[in-house]
Amino acid sequence: MRPVRFNLNPKEAEIADAISMGKAPDGVPGDGFFATQLSSVVGLARKNSLWPLPFATSCCGIEFMATMASHYDLSRFGSERVGFSPRQCDLLMVMGTIAKKMAPVLRQVYLQMAEPRWVIAVGACASSGGIFDTYSVLQGIDQVIPVDVYVPGCPPRPEAIIDGFMKIQDLVGQESIRRRNSEKYRDLLNSYGIQ
């Protein structure tokens, strides 16, 4: 039996760190009252209706099945309509190893998604390559597409996947509806070579 059972200080996620957040630069007036209200209502709607696109390549995909299944039931968050058509989905869940051969496909799928879109990298392989520090594996999908939330674990437990999902929900709920038109967002996409 282990002498210790819990780690009491798992790192808190700072939402301000997320690539999609960030303060408005000085001199930009804030949104009016109506726009803010609209933003928050839309954010509330979006966060409760995130339709995932499971880009499941390996082990994490099996844990995603467990997350979808009765024991954890992702549908409680309004997300059971998984679609494989990028046009219809809001959340790209990359689960599993992305080899260099797969990277262009992943990027293509991301490009085909309709705005607003979010990306969650589930598992060690998708986030950083995991144990596969080899010639054929992409060392983290953030080399090809912007990632909003990383979920560690190999594979993460369904709890961890749901945790990551709720982080995304927080992010979505706080996002301004104007963000996707902002200069900053364009810069982010440009840094990935996406027009």
């Binding site: 282990r2 819990f6 780690n7 790192k11 996620a13 939330v149 990383y150 560690p152 961890a160 982080k167």
Partner: peptide
């Protein structure tokens, strides 16, 4: 040395890569 253990806390998700570098302060028990 009876020094490192895995715990029953699962690793939480985070928004940035730097949120996953756990240094000694995060790992040591109280």
């Amino acid at each position: 040395k009876d020094a490192i253990y895995l715990s029953e806390t699962f690793a939480p998700a985070n928004y940035t890569r730097k949120g996953f570098i756990y240094d000694k302060n995060d790992l040591l028990i109280p």
